[in-house]
Amino acid sequence: MQFQAKLVIAVLAFCAVALCVEAQVPFFGGCPTKRVVEDFDASAYLGRWYEIEKYYAVFEADGKCIQAYYSDAGNGTIGVMNTQINRKTRRMKSIQGVARFTGSESTAKFGVRFPTVPFVADAPYWVLDTDYKNYSIVWSCNDFAVANFQIVWVLAREREPSPEIRDTIREKMDQFGIRRDLLQKTDQTNCDA
């Protein structure tokens, strides 16, 4: 009985922590090792990307028509402009930030900071795979005690990528060991604000 009580407390604490880190998807253990794009071409990555699927993130709750626009911000940084339409109010919401390489500029590991968000740490933004012209698979993971919290974003240059591109994305995600059953489709319909 005492073990069950401790287990319930541990699970509740784990869930509370998940809410504190933006309700990313929780997993036990530390962040797994993931390979990222080497020889990353930042200039080819710039431009508009539409969010096709993602792991749940509270900061995108009730969002549709979610997209990101990346620009050259100078000094080896990338400007980030994320926008979405609130599904209930139909109002557009946006947030601006800056992405910086966290390793060498040829490796697709970034830290993204949004000045209007009240925490100090850069959010990990790792490009696991991209062909620059059609799709990008982005992963973020944060360790906390005995758990890690992950977000995955599937981005595309088109609001509705072709079945062939979707097949490629699924194959790549399987190669990376990313759980596709946790993905939520992003509504990209009726996006005129």
Rank of each mutant, 00 (worst) to 15 (best):
155 L>I: 09
65 C>S: 06
153 W>T: 04
162 S>Y: 01
131 D>M: 06
185 K>F: 14
134 N>I: 06
34 K>Q: 15
28 F>A: 14
132 Y>W: 03
102 T>C: 07
177 G>P: 09
158 E>H: 08
131 D>Y: 07
187 D>V: 03
80 V>Q: 01
110 F>M: 00
64 K>C: 04
81 M>V: 14
109 K>A: 05
162 S>K: 03
192 D>S: 12
36 V>H: 07
16 A>M: 13
103 G>C: 05
129 D>I: 08
144 F>E: 05
84 Q>M: 08
21 V>M: 06
149 F>T: 01
176 F>Y: 12
79 G>V: 07
185 K>L: 15
68 A>F: 03
36 V>A: 13
129 D>W: 00
176 F>Q: 09
127 V>Y: 00
178 I>T: 01
2 Q>M: 08
47 G>V: 01
119 F>W: 05
150 Q>C: 12
110 F>C: 04
99 A>N: 05
109 K>F: 02
95 I>E: 02
11 V>N: 08
104 S>A: 04
83 T>K: 01
190 N>F: 03
43 S>E: 15
164 E>T: 09
172 K>N: 12
84 Q>T: 08
44 A>Y: 00
117 V>C: 06
67 Q>R: 10
126 W>Y: 08
51 E>I: 03
89 T>Y: 01
73 A>T: 04
102 T>P: 02
89 T>N: 05
65 C>H: 05
122 D>P: 10
6 K>H: 15
186 T>Q: 03
190 N>I: 05
28 F>P: 12
171 E>W: 04
93 K>L: 13
129 D>Y: 00
30 G>A: 14
99 A>V: 00
187 D>K: 02
23 A>H: 07
